[in-house]
Design a protein around this nucleic acid. Structure first.
Lengths: 339, 339
DNA sequence: TTGAAAGCGGTACCAG
DNA sequence: CTGGTACCGCTTTCAA
């Protein structure tokens, strides 16, 4: 089913059919009606590949994320999608599962699709890829990774500032032995979060910390917490790399009969909706996912007439949100009681 | 950057470049090397639109879901994606947000992309669309909606059986006043779930029920529960249309000081991972999302050599999973105490 | 083993 | 306002 058949049935040329398809308001009403009738009768659906090929432009944005299962990524994606739709763009997504081979495949796929812009919300990233992207001339926004370049915008979160708020808070509450639950993406921002914790501990000799890592899922958070505690280490507070893993931690603690926050404090990161709905509600750091989505879309779809904005970097400061999962460090007496 | 430029640089014809791109093992090794070098140097990325257009086939699957934010949909999607990748297919997704206008747009988009197969995991669905799809000749799998047809496979869940397990269980536990928390998709399976509850109540004159609905999110579950209880109605058990909304219900109850399960029982549906991690863990009905994903993929990508399977329908029975969110109905005495 | 050329299904420019 | 037609970038015979 193609243009030509429609044209034949409507007794016009393919050019005219193309015109009515694209709302060129130069077609006589009667002709247009005839064409539309033919389209309807033939159940004609234009081939988008042919369109993109002939038209040259794609009006499609690509979004690549490490783990769409984590609401953090999904929230950003959702904002991008609705902004894009509002401007008449489609968006295609790809998951990397934190695997850089998948990242490579996804990026090639996006380039192959000739997307009009690409957002990479990923922790893993090889320099070679960045180069490849730079040379592809597609407008790109990286979240958390890479360097600003010609056609590359960078959004980063000031993890150090965020983590410092957490460690200061915990320290003031009397916590000295900390645990850190991370996930298996050992590059980029995750490491930054972990390093920030490590540094805070290094700055303060009264503090100590042990870390554990597992998959970026509820189950992963639980397993990492289990590993952390099974080692015999007895922290009074666990800092989790994100909210999802923190909810996993909460479960492990519950099953061990460790009360939160009386016996153990737990913190998350991101402030996804779930962090308010779990029990106890998580103390966490808010990252404005909608704002990030809007920024990305603005970079990728420059308002008509304007040129793509010059290379630049946008830094975001996480906001500390105290809820129910944290409290004063248990005293020896209370701790004994709990056991 | 196109085939021709690569061809020129490698001093071969475009046909040859195409051959090395497609791993046709007819190219002399030395030639192949020359071409690959050129591709590398030029950072050439084949235009997928041109490829699809010329090749005719697409090796991509379309997946349309009502709400990817709900892990239920996402789990199915994820399974489809990994199965598809294993067989060398791509998959593109679309969200409808339960809006049938979005569904229409998404389906047209998929047809326009000439996907090799389409999975529609949606609650909303207009008959006209089904017809349109049937006529498009692409293999389709509907979850929960529509009728089996020529190129259409149907997967459905026996909601009635599932819900009956829940209502029987609750009835045996002494519950008489039920609440039902649903979401705003008033067509298809949701209605089936609700109708099953209504029917169970109708069959048993000692039972009564009131319903409330809101968005299919954590917050929606909370709001619906709030609405249900604010009306003055005092159920002893709340049946939720799915786990996500049940977690929302849990929060509202917590904030009202209503203990689960002592003062109120709560049930979910789907048995997503979250149902084990929330507190208290949810009594729910398990729906095998991975199995569903596999089935879908098998229908859409028939093993090479075989013809697409004939029209058929697959029915799934949910399995009842009892956890901590349900218990005996509170006695009058205990109830008074709680207040 | 390689090249030439005919499409694939549209778009857009140029005439009429 | 409408038709003719030269591409868009790649795949795929058909010959050489």
């Amino acid at each position: 089913m193609n243009l030509e058949q429609v044209a034949r049935r409507a007794k016009v040329s393919t050019a005219t059919v193309s015109r009515v398809l694209n709302n060129a308001n130069v077609v006589k009403t009667s002709t247009r009606a005839r064409v539309e009738k033919a389209i309807e009768e033939l159940k004609y659906h234009p081939n988008l590949h042919a369109r993109n090929l002939a038209g040259g432009k794609s009006r499609t944005l690509g979004v690549i994320a490490s783990n769409m299962e984590n609401p953090f990524f999904f929230d950003i994606y959702k904002t991008i999608e609705s902004d894009a739709h509002a401007r008449g763009y489609e968006v295609v997504v790809a998951n990397t599962d934190y695997r850089s081979e998948q990242l490579v495949a996804s990026i090639r796929l996006m380039i192959g699709r000739r997307v009009a812009g690409l957002a990479a919300i990923v922790s893993e990233m090889e320099p070679a890829l960045i180069k490849e992207l730079t040379e592809s001339r597609i407008p790109v926004v990286f979240y958390d990774v890479g360097q600003p370049r010609q056609n590359i915008t960078n959004i980063r979160v000031n993890y150090r500032r965020g983590i410092d708020k957490v460690t200061d808070y915990l320290h003031n509450m009397g916590h000295r032995r900390l645990g850190f639950v991370g996930h298996h993406a050992m590059l980029g921002p995750i490491n930054e979060r972990m390093k920030a914790v490590l540094d805070a501990v290094a700055r303060n000799s009264s503090l100590e910390v042990k870390t554990a890592a597992d998959a970026d899922t509820l189950e992963g958070g639980r397993q990492a917490t289990r590993a952390l505690l099974s080692s015999g280490y007895q922290p009074t507070a666990i800092i989790c790399v994100n909210d999802v893993m923190a909810v996993g931690a909460l479960r492990e603690l519950r099953e061990r009969g460790i009360r939160v926050p009386q016996d153990m404090s737990v913190t998350g990161f991101d402030n996804v909706k779930l962090s308010e709905f779990c029990y106890p509600a998580l103390t966490t750091l808010h990252i404005p996912r909608e704002r990030i989505g809007h920024i990305i879309c603005n970079c990728l779809i420059p308002p008509p007439g304007e040129v793509a904005p010059a290379e630049h970097e946008i830094v975001i400061d996480p906001e500390f949100v105290v809820r129910e999962s944290t409290g004063p460090a248990p005293t020896a007496a209370r701790k004994r009681h709990a056991t």
